[in-house]
Simulated scan of single mutants.
Amino acid sequence: MSQWIATLPMYNVTPCHAAWWRALLRDTLEAFARAGGPADVALLDEPVGDLLALWCREDLLLSQTCGYPYRMLGLAGNVQLIATPVFDADGCDGAAYRSVLVVSARAFANGATTLAACRGLRAAYNDEDSHSGMNAFRRAVAPYARDGRFFSASKRYGSHLNVLRALGEGTADCAAIDCVTLAYVRDALPELLREVRVIGMTASAPGLPLIASRSLGEALAASLYDSLEVARTADVERARALRLRGFARLGHDDYALIEQFSRDAAAMQYPVLA
């Protein structure tokens, strides 16, 4: 490959988080080059548009995806699993994470203090291909659904931040937020949570995997994993700000749990968040 590309698009909650992740990526690539990896790597700005196409590129040296497209949309067959971050956030356990079930303060005051009590409210989610915002949420709701429905409405908002804004503004009532994202919001944007209340958590699943093109090869993939840890330990304050404890090596089969969430919801006659 004459030139590779790299980008980390998933946890850029604020411009500061984006800068920290980009610096971590840059330090990773420098450590990787010193260890014999390719030196000609273009760092992309935060990508927009078709992320699935980006993740499938033959020249992808490093990026991060969600477990749902990795396991459910065929991505696993086209990429190499490099690492899964380990975060210091409520809801994380090693390389596993949960979604935090939240409601608007108004809904909470009106009795929506448990997920079961949210029947008939308005659901919000970030995207259809999100495990944290849709798949885990759907699985949590499924036992309470009747005839395939639980909410009065369900609306896509495009990001977890937009979902939190909708809860705060009163245009939505209930949602599930990635626990790492929520921790970042608590750290940097606490005003978004003033009108939001936590009512529980979903079951845990493997965290968002770091991936590369299969053309990288297994030996270089192992070296890239080591370079991630070199970069993390190179700046302790940055790692603390990112709540990044380290990295784990999970396998493809570990992400089967995300597919199981979907099958469970379908088995309970709740295939769509509704």
Rank of each mutant, 00 (worst) to 15 (best):
A203F: 00
S223Y: 00
A256E: 12
A175C: 10
C118D: 08
G77W: 07
V79E: 03
L25G: 06
L224M: 14
M134H: 15
D226H: 03
V180D: 08
Y157V: 03
S2H: 10
L75S: 06
L8W: 15
R146F: 06
L244S: 02
A172L: 07
D50N: 13
R122G: 01
N126W: 01
F247S: 02
A140E: 04
G158M: 06
A183P: 13
F150V: 02
P85D: 07
L192Q: 06
L24C: 14
W4I: 06
L29Q: 14
M134R: 15
L244A: 10
V48W: 00
A248K: 09
T181Y: 01
G251Q: 14
L54N: 06
L52S: 09
S99K: 03
L250R: 13
D178Y: 06
R106C: 02
A274R: 11
H17P: 03
G251V: 06
Y11E: 04
S159K: 09
A241D: 12
T14A: 05
E128Y: 12
E229P: 01
L250D: 01
D27G: 12
D264P: 00
L189H: 05
M1D: 13
A18H: 07
T171W: 03
P190L: 10
D90S: 12
L121T: 09
G120N: 10
C92G: 09
P47K: 03
R138H: 08
S204F: 00
A175L: 11
R146Q: 10
L208V: 09
D40F: 04
A266G: 06
A212M: 02
V79W: 04
V100E: 10
L224W: 12
D147N: 14
F261W: 02
D147E: 15
Y157H: 14
E229S: 05
R165A: 08
Y184E: 05
A256V: 06
G251P: 12
D226I: 00
M268W: 14
G49N: 07
L244Y: 08
G94V: 06
V198F: 01
G77K: 13
S130C: 15
E195T: 06
V141Q: 07
T84K: 09
F247H: 14
P47G: 03
G158Q: 11
N126L: 12
R238A: 01
L216Y: 12
A183E: 15
R106A: 06
D40I: 09
V196K: 09
E237T: 10
